[in-house]
Simulated scan of single mutants.
Amino acid sequence: MDRTLKDILMEHGPSGNVESGRNCSVYRLEDSYVKLADDVTVDTVEMYMDALDATGIAYPDTEVWQQDIPYYGLGETTVVHQDAAEPALEELIAEPERYINRIREIGLRAASNDIKIDLGLDNLAFIEGELGIVDFNDQEALWLDEDLALHLMGSHLLNSVNKMEREQGLYSPELYELAHNWKKSV
């Protein structure tokens, strides 16, 4: 990371410069993101990366560390620096049927390894040409040892499909059926 965290905070403030950062402050830099995730530890994020590695689910190159941030009263915070990935949302909306099997595969790989991923469409991205996940640094994005993994992933996916239908005119009975079937699988 070329710019210091102090520079980034002074330029953009404590809330980040990315609106979708609901669970943590997210800062978009030229070719990467910095996330201030005070609700997870470095060990937890590293455990999540190990779990994704074990399942073969793609995610951007990520570094994580703990840092005391004296600005804006942030204090001890987990800092996640993640390479930028190409968001998949536009392609998913344009051609949802093309990606259904890839989304299904990610969900089944995760569930078979007792992992629950927030499969919201806006959390999916292309990492070196492969569909993968970019949000795994907060308590809601990735859970391990989850009995209801398919149900919960289906719920996230169904909520995301419904939201994109309302907000962006997405029409994909296939994605809806996939999400609905996952949700009722348990």
Rank of each mutant, 00 (worst) to 15 (best):
E97W: 07
E140F: 03
W143V: 10
G154V: 07
H151Q: 13
T62Y: 11
L124Q: 06
E97P: 02
D138S: 15
A88G: 02
S160D: 04
D122R: 13
L89D: 03
D118F: 05
D122P: 06
Q67M: 14
Q66C: 08
A94M: 00
L74V: 12
Q82M: 11
N137P: 00
E95T: 01
S172T: 05
R104D: 01
L108N: 09
G107M: 10
L175H: 08
E130I: 12
T62Q: 11
D147G: 12
A54L: 05
P173K: 14
D61Q: 11
A54M: 06
Y72M: 08
M153V: 15
A58P: 01
D138A: 14
D122N: 15
Y72T: 05
P60N: 08
G169A: 04
E91R: 02
I69F: 08
E177S: 13
L74A: 11
F126M: 01
G120P: 06
R166S: 07
E105N: 14
N113M: 06
D122Q: 12
T77A: 00
G169N: 03
D135F: 02
A179Y: 02
N113Y: 06
Q139G: 02
L124E: 04
V161S: 04
I106E: 02
E130D: 13
N123I: 10
L150H: 11
L148F: 12
P60M: 10
H156G: 10
V64Y: 08
L158I: 11
I127E: 05
L152C: 14
R109Q: 14
H156P: 11
P70E: 15
Q82N: 03
Q139M: 03
L148N: 15
Q168V: 05
E63G: 04
E105F: 07
P173R: 15
L158C: 11
A94C: 00
I127L: 07
P87G: 09
A179K: 04
S160R: 07
A85M: 10
N159C: 10
A149F: 01
N113G: 06
E105V: 06
Q139I: 09
D114H: 15
E177Y: 07
A125F: 06
G132F: 02
S155E: 15
T77S: 01
A94H: 00
A58T: 03
L108M: 12
L131E: 03
E146Y: 03
L170K: 01
Y71A: 14
Y171F: 04
L157E: 14
L144M: 12
I57A: 03
L144P: 07
E97Q: 12
K116E: 14
I93N: 05
D83G: 04
Y71G: 07
E95A: 06
G73Y: 13
I100K: 12
E91Y: 00
L142T: 13
A88R: 03
I133K: 01
D145T: 10
L92G: 03
P87N: 10
